[in-house]
Design a protein around this nucleic acid. Sequence first.
DNA 1: CAGTATCCGCGACGATACTG
DNA 2: CAGTATCGTCGCGGATACTG
Lengths: 122, 122
Amino acid sequence: MDTAPAPDSELRVTAPHRELLDQVLDKWSLSVLNELCERPRRFNELRRAIPAVTQKSLTATLRRLERNGIIERELLSSRPVAVEYRITPLGKTLRRPVDVLLDWATDHMPEIERARRTFDTE
Amino acid sequence: MDTAPAPDSELRVTAPHRELLDQVLDKWSLSVLNELCERPRRFNELRRAIPAVTQKSLTATLRRLERNGIIERELLSSRPVAVEYRITPLGKTLRRPVDVLLDWATDHMPEIERARRTFDTE
DNA sequence: CAGTATCCGCGACGATACTG
DNA sequence: CAGTATCGTCGCGGATACTG
């Protein structure tokens, strides 16, 4: 090899990585994941659980997560039509990284807010 | 307590969490972090290291990370003007969560690509 | 060298209305 | 109930030009 890379541990931020993170960590995905990690939900259950999301955005989020194999959609053949969304085994593996990230955010939020105030007032 | 929450481990996706993740995991932040984790860099060093980024976006990314206390900007009083960016202790704590996330992405990329192909062809 | 200023396109997202 | 369709807004990010 010529360019002698990787000093300690590489971050490897490739285009596919970025695209994947954009799909999986987008605005509503974490909230949806949160709900579906507890138990399967129907569409309107999710709407009620995440009041700020619109139909359109929720549908888009669900499709995106389904396409990436994170969640599953099952059409229950009942009277008016019912759909159940549940997390897949692959989706469950995403939980740990997300938890680590949210723990980081929670732990360092005070420090970050201090940094912001300092930055904003000088 | 009344609403008996948290079945296993809660995800806690609050608005501040989302805002923070948006600031810290945005399009170019991971690449910048990657570079600055190795060693401090000057502005144009970063541009060369991340060829796809524009001046404007790089500047914006650096400001945002600086505001959140993730990186530091030092103005070196040399002849033409030199600026050095380096990661802060707080910034270093972000490394682990990001690594976990990227490892997840790397590990599951094949499975995810399979899921996408399946979804797209049916 | 390290930015700032300006213009602009494009995709994300919301609001609203309609449907099998 | 679980969507689709349409319209409109807004802001990110790119392209380009200029500056201390």
